[in-house]
Simulated scan of single mutants.
Amino acid sequence: MHLADLLCSPHSRRISHSRLWANVACAAATAMFVRDGWRGALTPDIWVIYLGVVGGYSASLRMIAAYRDKGQSS
């Protein structure tokens, strides 16, 4: 996997704003999560929100991709 795959549309190979900003948001959330972890400031609420947002986003992308693949194979 290349770094460009995180930012570019697979069809046109041009920068995709939705991919760019989604990855920026996930990176910022991860940085804040790690920072709070080092400070010892993580609470159960922060864990739930972080895992729900970042993990939910990743799971949603995989579900959408699987749904599209299923629709194209029919």
Rank of each mutant, 00 (worst) to 15 (best):
M1I: 10
H2K: 14
A4S: 15
L6D: 08
L6M: 15
L6V: 03
L6G: 13
L7T: 13
C8S: 11
C8N: 15
C8R: 15
C8L: 12
S9Y: 09
P10H: 09
P10W: 09
H11Y: 13
H11M: 13
H11F: 12
H11P: 01
S12L: 08
S12R: 13
S12H: 08
R13E: 14
R13A: 14
R14P: 02
R14K: 15
S18A: 14
S18L: 14
L20I: 09
L20S: 07
A22M: 11
A22C: 07
N23S: 07
V24K: 02
V24E: 02
A25F: 09
A25V: 08
A25R: 04
C26E: 08
C26L: 10
C26Y: 03
A27N: 03
A28T: 04
A28R: 00
A28E: 00
A28W: 00
T30W: 00
A31S: 07
M32K: 06
F33V: 01
F33M: 13
R35A: 05
R35E: 01
D36V: 00
D36I: 00
D36S: 02
G37R: 05
R39T: 01
R39E: 10
G40M: 07
G40H: 03
G40I: 08
L42D: 00
L42W: 00
T43S: 15
T43Y: 07
T43R: 14
P44W: 08
P44M: 04
P44I: 03
D45W: 12
D45Y: 11
D45H: 12
D45K: 10
I46E: 00
W47G: 00
W47R: 11
W47D: 02
V48W: 15
I49T: 13
I49R: 09
Y50T: 03
Y50G: 01
Y50N: 04
L51H: 10
L51A: 15
G52C: 08
G52W: 11
G52Q: 10
G52A: 08
G52T: 10
V54K: 06
V54R: 05
V54Q: 06
V54P: 02
G55E: 07
G55D: 05
G55L: 05
G56S: 05
G56L: 03
G56V: 04
Y57L: 10
Y57Q: 07
S58F: 11
A59E: 05
A59C: 08
A59H: 06
S60V: 05
S60D: 04
L61G: 13
R62S: 09
M63W: 13
A66G: 02
A66C: 09
R68Q: 12
D69T: 04
D69N: 14
G71P: 01
Q72R: 15
S73R: 14
S73L: 10
S74G: 07
S74P: 02
S74K: 11
